[in-house]
């Protein structure tokens, strides 16, 4: 999750630059996280809730600190989350399937 937060931060920072942060990097890290969660005995639904908690924490903290998130930034955050969850659940399902033989 710390790596995901760094990647979201870089994505937001570089969004309008000539060299935007590659979404594929988020996917690669999320796939590795999906495998970690299989190793830790977590179900595929817990993978989703894991990332959902990050979204909730960011929006709640922003509210508490009166730091409004504009729509464009919210979209970017959700795009990163969707990419991460999609790759994490795909890897979770793949590894689980392989281990069950």
């Amino acid at each position: 999750m710390p790596l995901f937060l760094t990647q979201v931060s870089e994505t937001l920072r570089l969004e309008t630059s000539e060299t935007p942060f590659p979404t594929s990097a988020i996917g690669i890290a999320a796939a590795a996280h999906g495998k970690e969660l299989v190793d830790g005995g977590y179900s595929v639904s817990q993978v989703v809730h894991d990332y959902g908690d990050v979204c909730q924490a960011i929006t709640e903290l922003a509210l508490e600190q009166k730091a409004p998130i504009n729509v464009k930034e919210f979209h970017t955050l959700n795009r990163c989350l969707d990419a991460a969850i999609a790759e994490a659940v795909t890897e979770h399902a793949r590894v689980t399937s392989l281990r069950r033989g």
């Binding site: 639904s45 989703v48 959902g52 399902a93 689980t96």
Partner: peptide, 21 residues
């Protein structure tokens, strides 16, 4: 909204994985 979407995504991916299992 966000909590319900998380539940829906979790339900959909779980059933997809279950179907394969």
């Amino acid at each position: 909204l966000n909590r319900s979407l998380d539940l829906a995504i979790a339900g959909a991916v779980t059933q997809h994985a279950c179907g394969q299992a």
